[in-house]
Nucleic acid binder design. Structure first.
Lengths: 195, 195
DNA sequence: CAGTCTACTGAGCGATCGCTTAGGCTGAGC
DNA sequence: GCTCAGCCTAAGCGATCGCTCAGTAGACTG
């Protein structure tokens, strides 16, 4: 996810910021804590980023790009609605386990963005929601699913996957792939695909 | 939920803190912002609370008490597992809509607590999880539900309800009661109670 | 080798933070 | 009518915040 961030020092700062934002929150993290974590002195952050808020924005852009790419790749080549929802939910929820630190940052810290940056991120989040809603709607229209409330059901699937980043612990009993399989199975029950 | 907090000035401070913590986060909120919101000067906070962190702890105690009381009251008198899970999920999710600000505080800001306070809150959260797990397990044992993974399914129900506080907006199209009904219905599908 | 550029250091700026303290106001009890 | 405890204000402490900037080390160019 971070491979494209250059130069290497900018990437080190960004990774240190994700770590610290996830653990202490945006406002709980000082710029000195970030630069120390990246092995640099206090002023180095401003060589690569305009402000602390800009650093958060760059993180949000990269992370949301990663989510969207992951979801689209998961759907690629799948035809039948149950297969598509299974792939989508597997990818979405296992991504939230694998990248739980980055996910926590984009779930909890977006209110620190300036309005115009927040709007750009909100647009990317809307794309994710519409992607899920489209799959639920398609399955309901084709008769594969039994769904009375389309947006409400899409919201439920979204909740199942996103909430993973809140409770997931790497030392816990489940791997990201096992969580993906569980969430996908649960999602198919939620849309009424099991007969 | 806050009626028992006395004197009235302490309650005003507490309510202002919940508002601000929910909107700006614990570290994003200054003690001056809290006292201004309660119509007092900066020093007034320390008449009623030892520290800013202690104020957060008092909030967490009250809020978790409210959740536990709400869940136990919802189960009271219900006999059959499907009825109990429906009541539990209705109460849990509609509580998260009705009290979405307080819920956001206890979901996102608990890491700011001191270790011994965090441990007390963690114990209360464990009680909530065990309450849900017990209902899922009882329904599976009695044959009302079809559940292969008991803790995983309990976690899914918990996610459905808790995540409400992340996306709920008072100006949105659904009332807390409608959200409760939707989550309860979804939960019964997740546990395989629909035949 | 001299000159230039980029990446970074480290001191430090003004602002704001959590919290303390001295003192004033108010109302219940004697 | 006086005392005193409880509640609150206003000023301000030391620490830390985000951010700036003059200076430097080292690689590259001509």
């Amino acid at each position: 996810m971070w491979a494209t961030v250059r130069p290497e020092a900018a990437r080190r700062l960004l990774l240190a910021a994700v770590d610290s934002f996830a653990e202490l929150g945006y406002h709980g993290t000082s710029t000195r804590h970030i630069t120390t974590g990246a092995g640099m002195s206090a002023g180095a952050l401003y060589v690569h980023y305009r402000t602390k808020a800009d650093l958060l924005f760059q993180i949000a852009l990269i992370v949301h790009d990663s989510v969207l790419a992951t979801l689209r790749e998961a759907l690629d080549g799948k035809e039948e609605p149950p297969q598509r929802v299974r792939a989508l939910m597997y990818a979405f929820s296992s991504w939230h386990a694998r990248h739980h630190e980055a996910a926590r940052v984009i779930q909890n810290e977006m209110r620190a963005l300036e309005p115009e940056h927040a709007a750009r991120i909100a647009a990317m989040r809307r794309q994710v929601r519409e992607l899920i809603l489209a799959e639920v709607s398609a399955g309901a229209a084709s008769g594969h699913f039994d769904v009375a409330d389309l947006p409400g059901t899409a919201r439920a699937l979204s909740s199942l996957a996103i909430d993973v980043c809140r409770w997931y612990r790497p030392e816990g009993p489940r791997t990201p792939d096992e969580i993906g399989a569980l969430c996908a199975h649960t999602a198919l029950r939620v849309v009424g695909a099991e007969r």
